[in-house]
C-alpha cells in the first residue's frame, strides 16, 4: 500500500515561498495515495515553466518534456500502456499558449489521462510577461500599456473541445483540489482540472485574497447540474470564469477503446515482438 512517504522526493522545489504550485504537488501526492496507486504505476508528464518542474518533485516515473508538448507525450505513454495512471501538469502559458493545439485535441480524443493546469495568469519563470489567461488591460513586462488581447476561457475552450471531465479549483483550498484530482484520475477519459495557482512574485492582482473573495463555489448552488453542458457554459460566463468545483462531466468512450482492434487487448508495451512465419506471410500477402 503506497504511502505519502513513497511519493516524496528529497528535492526542494525551486518555487518561490508561497507559490500556489506547492499545494498542487501535495494534492497530487495525496490523491495518488488515497486512490492507492503504486508509484511505479504513476507517470507524471510536465511541460516547461515554473509549474513544469513538478515532475521532478515526486517519486514516480516523471517526465519533464517540451514547452507545450507534455500532453502529447502523455498520450503516447497511455497508448503504450493503459494500465498506468497518467497525469500531465503544467502552466497556463504551456497549456493554452504554446501547447493550445494539443489541449484541444487531447480533449476531443478523450484519452484517459488527467491534465492539471496551474493557472497563474502570467509567465513566471521568464519573470513576468502576459499569458493567454491574462485579462485585457493587464499590466506586465511585455504589456506595459496593458494587455491588448482578450484572454481565453480555459473552461469554455474545454467544453467546446468536447472534454468529458472539466473541473476548476484554487490552490488555497488543498482539500478541494485533492478531491478534484481524485475524481479526475478515476474518470475514464480526458479529465481537465484548471487550478488557480497564484504567482506571489509577479502577479499582484490574482492573489490568494482575490480568489478567496471572488471565486464562486459550485457546491453552494444546489441547482447546478454538472451533466448539462449548456448550464456549464453559462455558469462560466456568469462568473467570468471565477468558479470552482466540477464544471462538467459526461461518460463517453475513451480513445483506446474507440481504436479499431484495440479494446481489451494486451498493452502495446507488453507484447512479444517476434512474428511467426504465418504472421509474416499475412503481412506480405497483398504485395505478392
Amino acid at each position: 500500500m503506497a504511502t505519502l512517504h513513497d511519493y516524496r522526493m528529497d528535492i526542494t522545489p525551486n518555487w518561490c515561498p508561497g507559490c500556489g504550485d506547492f499545494s498542487v504537488l501535495a494534492a497530487i501526492q495525496k490523491a495518488a495515495v488515497n486512490l492507492n496507486i503504486e508509484p511505479e504505476n504513476f507517470v507524471l508528464q510536465s511541460g516547461i515553466g515554473c509549474s513544469g518542474r513538478i515532475s521532478g518533485y515526486l517519486n514516480v516515473y516523471g517526465m519533464h518534456t517540451m514547452h507545450g508538448r507534455s500532453l502529447a507525450v502523455a498520450q503516447g505513454v497511455k497508448l503504450a500502456n493503459r494500465d498506468l495512471t497518467v497525469v500531465c501538469a503544467g502552466g497556463d502559458g504551456d497549456g493554452f499558449g504554446i501547447g493550445g493545439n494539443h489541449f484541444v485535441h487531447a480533449a476531443r480524443r478523450n484519452i484517459d489521462i488527467t491534465y492539471i493546469v496551474m493557472d497563474n495568469q502570467i509567465y513566471g519563470l521568464t519573470k513576468g510577461q502576459m499569458s493567454p489567461t491574462s485579462p485585457k488591460g493587464f499590466l506586465t513586462k511585455s504589456s506595459p500599456e496593458g494587455n491588448p488581447e482578450s484572454p481565453i476561457s480555459p473552461l469554455q475552450l474545454a467544453l467546446s473541445a468536447n472534454a468529458s471531465f472539466i473541473a476548476q479549483g484554487f490552490s488555497g483550498d488543498i482539500k478541494h483540489i485533492t478531491s478534484l484530482i481524485e475524481q479526475g484520475i478515476r474518470h475514464k477519459g480526458f479529465a481537465f482540472i484548471n487550478i488557480f495557482s497564484p504567482c506571489v512574485t509577479f502577479n499582484k492582482v490574482f492573489t490568494y485574497d482575490f480568489f478567496k473573495q471572488n471565486i464562486v463555489n459550485l457546491d453552494d448552488d444546489p441547482q447546478y447540474d454538472s451533466t448539462d453542458r449548456t448550464m456549464a457554459f453559462d455558469k462560466v460566463e456568469q462568473t467570468d470564469g471565477f468558479v470552482k468545483g466540477l464544471i462538467y462531466r459526461k461518460e463517453r468512450m475513451d480513445f483506446v477503446d474507440a481504436l479499431p482492434g484495440r479494446s481489451g487487448k494486451e498493452n502495446l508495451s507488453n507484447q512479444d515482438l517476434q512474428l511467426s512465419a504465418d504472421q509474416v506471410q499475412n503481412l506480405l500477402q497483398r504485395y505478392m
Binding site: 507517470v43 508528464q45 517526465m63 518534456t65 517540451m66 507545450g68 508538448r69 502529447a72 507525450v73 502523455a74 498520450q75 503516447g76 505513454v77 497511455k78 497508448l79 503504450a80 500502456n81 498506468l84 493545439n101 494539443h102 485535441h105 502495446l268 508495451s269 507488453n270
Partner: peptide
C-alpha cells in the same frame, strides 16, 4: 509536434 511527442511517450513506456 504531437506525432513525435507521442512517439517519445510510447518509446519511453517500452513500446
Amino acid at each position: 509536434l504531437a506525432a513525435i511527442a507521442m512517439v517519445i511517450g510510447a518509446g519511453y513506456a517500452g513500446t
